[in-house]
Simulated scan of single mutants.
Amino acid sequence: MTETQRVAIVTGGSRGIGRETVSRLAADGLALVVVYAGRSADADSAVEEVTSKGGRAIAAQADIADEQAVSAVFDRAEQEFGGVDVVVNAAGVMNEPTPLVDLSLAEFDRIHRTNVRGAFVVSQQAARRLRKGGALINFSSSVTRLRAPGYTAYGASKGAVETMTLVLARELRGRDITVNAVAPGPTATALFLENNTQEAIDRLSSAPPLERLGQPRDIAEVVAFLAGPARWVNGQVLYANGGIA
């Protein structure tokens, strides 16, 4: 590792958009900490993909809503690589579309524990530890614009993430750290495909003017832009959805 090598922590880095982001940032020369909740084999595979190409990466397990676990991830990143320059909080959960009147409070709490509390915990550690010139990228969703029935809890959680992101960008005045959120539209990840009917998948595939679902690599390109060259983009929500909203 050279002194100038940048270091990124990617939560949810074992699958989907997070996994693609790990590959994309490694291609830009960053060292990676792949954070996973429970799929150690997937995380190890992501690390192997990076290291097999000459990059540097480690896996770290954490429940992102657990302050001590997330703090330990940052500790390990600092011990292994010397510091943290980029934090991508791609971890998240969603529910099968369910009307508000039928959604259980247990399911509401499950979604908000990961998506809101988790985003807060990760953002707090990032704000404390990112080096000058760093970037924090949270994940919202185009559901906040589409307002699709059945996504009350999920949409509310992502609305909270957007507000948190925009406020934090202003709280970090003078630190030379950018804070932004990416809001994907329907994207062909396991999270999306497993929580929607085939009818909904077909309908959403044809809805954007580009007439397809997003792919994880589409979103990873936006993340790489915010993590690297986009130093004048700050306190923004970038909607990456093919024009669906």
Rank of each mutant, 00 (worst) to 15 (best):
T98I: 09
A91D: 04
D109N: 13
S141K: 01
V116C: 06
R129L: 04
A126R: 01
F81Y: 14
Q68H: 07
I137M: 01
R117T: 15
A65D: 01
R113G: 03
G150R: 07
I64C: 05
S140A: 14
G54L: 11
L168D: 03
V84M: 03
R175V: 04
V88N: 02
G55N: 11
A69G: 05
T152Y: 12
A169K: 01
T114R: 05
V87T: 05
A62N: 05
F74Q: 05
A91R: 02
K158W: 12
V88C: 04
R131L: 10
L103F: 09
R76Q: 14
K53Q: 15
A181L: 09
G55R: 09
G92M: 05
L146R: 13
D75S: 13
E78P: 08
V87R: 11
D75G: 08
V179K: 05
R117M: 13
L172C: 08
V73K: 07
L146S: 10
R56E: 15
L100Q: 00
A181Y: 07
V70G: 03
V88I: 14
D109P: 08
E48M: 08
R110Y: 06
G54T: 07
I64L: 12
P97L: 00
N138Y: 02
Y151E: 12
G150H: 11
V161G: 12
A91M: 05
T152A: 15
